[in-house]
Design a binder for these strands. Sequence first.
DNA 1: AAGTGGTCTAGACCACTAT
DNA 2: TAGTGGTCTAGACCACTTT
Lengths: 250, 250
Amino acid sequence: MKIETLQTINRDFMDPPYVQLANILRNQIVKGIFPPGARIPSESELCKRYHVSHMTVRRTIKLLSDQGVVDTFQGRGTFVKGMQLKSGTFKLRELDDLFGEDGKTKVKLLEARVAKADKIIAQKLRLKKGDRTIFIKRLLLQNGDPVLYHKEYLIGDPTQPIVESEMEVTSLHGLFAGNGESNLKRGELTIEAVQLEESEAALLKVTDSLAALCIEHLFFDFEERPVSWGRFICRNDRLKFKTTVGIETR
Amino acid sequence: MKIETLQTINRDFMDPPYVQLANILRNQIVKGIFPPGARIPSESELCKRYHVSHMTVRRTIKLLSDQGVVDTFQGRGTFVKGMQLKSGTFKLRELDDLFGEDGKTKVKLLEARVAKADKIIAQKLRLKKGDRTIFIKRLLLQNGDPVLYHKEYLIGDPTQPIVESEMEVTSLHGLFAGNGESNLKRGELTIEAVQLEESEAALLKVTDSLAALCIEHLFFDFEERPVSWGRFICRNDRLKFKTTVGIETR
DNA sequence: AAGTGGTCTAGACCACTAT
DNA sequence: TAGTGGTCTAGACCACTTT
């Protein structure tokens, strides 16, 4: 029989008690002391064992719950969650890396003109067919190589020259780096696989596989009006999105 | 001049005070009272204004922070975040919907056999080239239509018959629905676009576009050993992943 | 020094679930 | 009814940034 040595909270440690307790519990879960589906000790029990207050235990549990490690049920208890594929989330953070401080990334404006909305665009931007929009086509280069291709239709403000309005609404750098000063409130994104057209493949200098990731976007302003609809088309070999599911081991 | 009427917290309301306060602040942000980049009132200020305790205000701020609406900086204040593309996350929840209660989804086992690891698979599963693995190929049907195609290599347990071990390790339903009883601790996922091979296209009954979303996975057990490597290949027209960025308006 | 966010406590009360 | 999670408080102390 192995004697269970209870890890304790160190008040002088860098990590606050609620983080320490979360680490302790997560370790016990990983070790199999609390397998998936099992109930972990109740909050009052944890208070007693680790000499912390109820609120501190609750923060610990909230943390583990946010991390997808446990699920709580009022009146029943807190249970260890198994790995769930559905909890997987692909972060666009990878895209952000494109805009590192090193300035190796450049945006090339390929086209900017007034275009009349066709049926689809009119529907997306809540316009009438034939209404005036601004069409913009941009290419994102890294070390001279094309990695991303962006095509969008903006609601045109007739009082503004085209170039200015595009810079303000959706400067690519601003969008990704998100320094905060855009007029956009929110966006809806969809990811799918597309077959590159010949012209697009040429732009991206793709020769082998014509499959590419496409991120369709619809951005809204603070009045909930759609202001931009378009697509990012990513070179398959240059951009991949990663994620993890289950318990992260930091 | 418009008189600013201060919304108040209703103690008898269904939503607890910290949620109510979060809604109030989020509304003010959406209305432009606190534009992106602006500092919102300090925590002690909010305590006074809304007659709630410090801890309650902190939960409100934590909630907004989790939602990506604000950013906090110790000693400086809490600031409204602008919309950031990089915060976008594509949830696999959509996949989960495939396994609704209605039982219209079926999994068809196409192949299950012993296979020797080639160089790539050996590397992924930390085996030697030529080591024994179990190869499994499955098709997921919805209302009789193929939507998803799964191909994986498992570390083979020689003491178990093939079919049993596959059911235990990665039953598709278990993976997505995540009822909890798998032996998997975590997984690494990558999403990319692929060009379907002819045989795959035939399996998925795809005729028009050969582009498809591919989710590559590597699952680990609780001893951090890789146990399964493979790919989900999704029919483009049947599975799309969506997300939103910026402020959600529920 | 004053103001800001970050953490902890001890105790209170509530809502829900099991028995 | 007892046990569980969920919320709130009032006050204390700390770490950090600005003035």
